[in-house]
Structures are given as C-alpha cells and as structure tokens.
Design a protein around this nucleic acid. Structure first.
Lengths: 252, 252
DNA sequence: CGTCAGTTTGAAAGTCGTCAAGGGCCGTGG
DNA sequence: CCACGGCCCTTGACGACTTTCAAACTGACG
C-alpha cells in the first residue's frame, strides 16, 4: 500500500525498511470524508493526526466579519494536524473539497513512533519545513502580487506539488477548484477572482472543465506567475545532518 | 544566563535540569549583528541555526519586480533557520532591524542535541508549531483585513509575543518599527501604511517616538484589530503527549 | 422542469498605489 | 555654531485596482 507520502519520502533516500514499517503501522486505520465535510473544526480539541491518502481539502480560518481565509490546500501525501501533539486546540478548520480517504491515528501514537526513529523525525521535519515554505509563499503571493499573477502562481504551485506526490503530468493539470474557493485562498472577492480567471482563459493558459480547472500551458503560467521553482524543490537532506544522528541509532 | 527562550520554555513545565543543560551547551557561542546587516542571505546555503538573545530582525523574500514581502518579525527567544538541517538552501533572507545578539551553532549540533532529549524535540516542535500559527495569522491579516485593522493587528501580535518572552508591559509597548518596514510586512504601499498609521494616531491608539512606535492603548487596539488571543496562548503540552515519550527515556 | 451551485457581466463606489513635493530630526563636517 | 545630507515621515492629487451590488446565465441533477 504505497501512499503519496511514500512517494515524497522515497525521494529523500535515507529511510530504511524499518522506518517504513513503523510508518505503515501508524497508517493502518483508515477513514473517509465527503465534500464539504469538516475534518477539523475551528477552536475545537484535536486528538487525531491524519495523513491524506486521497482527495483534497483546505485549511482555513473564519473571521468575525463573516469572511474566511483559506491558508493552504491539502492534497494526497499531506499531513493534517501535525502539531496537535503540542497544540491540541485547533486554530483553524479543515474542510474536505472532494471525497477523501485518509489514515488517522491518535497523536500519542505519532509521538511514540517518532521516538522510535530519529530518521522519521527528520523525514517529518522535512515535510513540516516544506509546508512552512509554502506558507511563506502564500504570504508573498497575497502580499505582493497582482491578482492575475496570484492566480497563476497558486495553480502552478498545486501542479508542482501534485507532481511531487507522484501524479503524472496530465493528472496534475486537473485541479478541483471552484472560483469561490480560489478567491478565499487568494484574499480577493469572488467577482474579482472570476475576472482574473477570465483573463487567463482568454490567454489560453487555463480552461474550465465542469467545476474543475485544467492547466493548458504550465510553462506559460509559470512565466505569468513569476514562479520560482526553488522553494518546492525536492532537495536532499545533507549527509552531515544524517551523520549527526547515526551514532545514536547504532551506538558503537 | 537566562534567555527569552528559557522564559518561553519554562511556561511549558516539563523540561528538567538535564534538558536545560543540553540547551545551554548549545547556546554557548554568541555573535552580534548591526542594524541592516543580513544575518541570512536569500538563496544561499545555511549551516548555522541561531537563537535571538536580544534585538529584532525580520524574515523576507524578494520578488523579481523589485518589491519584497516581510514574512514575519523575529524577536528575542525566536529561532532563525530552524529547518536548515533539512533544507540547507535558504528561501528567504533575514535582516537585523536593531543591534542584535544571538547564539549560533552548526545544524549538526542541533540534530545531536535533539536526539539526546525527546523533551527538547517536543519543546522545539512547540516553538515551531507556534511560528506556524503566526504565519497563518499573517496570511489571514493580509488576505482578509482592511489596512487599518491590519496594522493594529500586527502591533498587538508583537506586543503579546514580547510579553510571552518576558518583557514587561511597558517594554512591550515600544516597537522598533518604521513605516516602510510595516508596509512591506502588511503588503501595502508605504504611503498607504502612513495613512493607516495616521488614522490610529488620530484615535490616540498609537504614537510615534523617534523611529519607534508606542502603543498607547492595547485594549482598544485589539478591538480595532479584531484580535483573537487564542492563537498565541501559552497552552500546556498535554500530559498524554508527555507520557507517550517517557517510556523511551526511562526504559523499564 | 425547477432547483441549486457555480459562473459571468456591468456599473458604481471604495480602497489603494503612484507620483511628486515638502517637513522634521539627527549626525557629520566645515 | 551652522550647513548639509540622509533617513524617515507626511500630504495632496490622480489614476489603477478591487469590491460591492444586482442581475442573468450555465450545467448537473432529481
């Protein structure tokens, strides 16, 4: 049962069979969610961490004025409520966008598993570090890009993330995003999101396919978005870091 | 030598003397930076992790169009380049805003220290989790708040963070921020930042003090900002999480 | 065939950025 | 002591970008 998480972690090239065995045991219990379902409720206690096997969700925050901000999108291979072990009260909600399947486990199991393998600590820290970079990019996108390039940018990011999780070029060009969802993610009104959307359609860069979006020309989209691939690069963890933990695993 | 990090971690109530001893050994080597100095350069290899002892900095990204986005502010007790152990190429720069002092250590020392204490792993994960929440809030701020409440909001956040790091009420009301810096952090033009600033001054909520900002009425500012204190709360790590690692430390 | 969610469009109003010019404070050097 | 430059703040006018409101359109589905 190879998941998208396996695909991402494989590229790190340092996890051995034992690590994957520990991981697999953690991922045994499965669950499902339907579109619109709240996987995590805002301001509520969270005791489970989840790994997305299939389907899309988003993490969001509601504001007092009735609007909401989507913080980021969650796709297969992403972890939900990773920090729940330290911060059990969720500051944001998670809503399923498509039918979903995920593995779930109590946070205590996660802690136990992590204390069993320094390799896994590193691997999940690497995932956490990548998510932080995506938040950085989300901030930059909303803060300093105009609406058209904002839209192009997030589409390219999602495409690249899908590719990194093992989807083929074609699959990674079909995104289950409505314009209302995009507007909440990009910090703009739905009407304006539509206008930016239309502009990209007119340029032949994207197209609507039912209620999905198809990327027609990723290269050109990257250019419009001024997209810098570096922040999502599947960089290797440096050997020096790995050496620093080996002595603890195999005491001489 | 009690640092602001100690103050923050003390409130967690689960680190023992040995943990602090390990930590202190990590923090022995010190260094300084002057205002405007680049502590971390964008797109360059990072081999050191730092802990801010004193002074302010910000983390930022430059864009191709010549603008930049400040991602977050770094104050005493904050860690710089925590993820450098897994992602050695920095995706953002860090610039000193005031004279700074920090502890610095090679990332390998950090990895070694962490593999020596599961408690410290949790403690630093807790710090990392908090920073992620602040990034969430930064996204929400820029995406879904108007300029006046955006400004009020970040000022209150910085105030609360300073209090959490051990500064007294008065110290935590004097922030070394120029309007140009604020505008880059809030995703607006310097001119517009000034207008929002003036509006808050006129209401008597803030005042300029040389090139610093003084908060005159934090309560009222919180109201204007629609500030929700929950995301910065110094929550305790749940006992169940702590229990989950104990067996590994003291095998029966 | 009606409903519903999602999309599309226009017009008017509001927010925000750009350009340009001027002011205050402070440290340096004459 | 004063002049000068540099950095930061301030303000007005104008134009660009974005939101809001309102109405209509489309395709999927029972």
């Amino acid at each position: 049962m190879t998941t998208c998480l396996h695909t991402r972690l494989d590229s790190l090239n340092f996890l051995d069979e034992d690590d994957f065995a520990l991981l697999d045991r953690l991922l045994e219990r499965r669950d499902k969610a339907t579109p619109g379902e709240l996987v995590v409720v805002e301001m509520q206690k969270v005791t489970q961490t989840r790994l997305i096997i299939d389907g899309w969700a988003y993490r969001y925050r509601s504001l007092a004025n009735g609007t909401r901000q989507i913080l980021n999108f969650l796709i297969p291979g992403d972890i939900i409520s990773f920090y729940a072990m330290m911060l059990p009260l969720s500051d944001c909600g998670v809503e399923a966008m498509t039918p979903m399947e995920f593995a779930h486990f109590p946070v205590t199991d996660l802690v136990e598993t992590l204390s069993g393998s320094a390799h896994l600590v590193l691997a999940l820290s690497w995932i956490a570090g990548q998510s932080e970079r995506m938040l950085d990019e989300q901030i930059t996108r909303i803060g300093r890009r105009n609406s058209k390039s904002r839209l192009a940018h997030i589409l390219v990011e999602l495409h690249v993330r899908l590719r990194n999780s093992g989807f083929d070029k074609d699959q990674a060009c079909l995104l289950p995003l409505t314009q209302a969802v995009l507007s909440d993610a990009l910090g703009m009104s739905a009407v304006h999101a539509n206008r930016s959307f239309r502009a990209l359609v007119k340029d032949g860069l994207i197209a609507r396919e039912k209620s999905d979006i198809r990327l027609m020309d990723v290269t050109q989209l990257s250019r419009v978005a001024d997209f810098d691939h570096a922040y999502l690069e599947q960089t290797e963890v440096p050997a020096t870091t790995l050496n620093a933990i080996e002595p603890k695993l195999v005491p001489t």
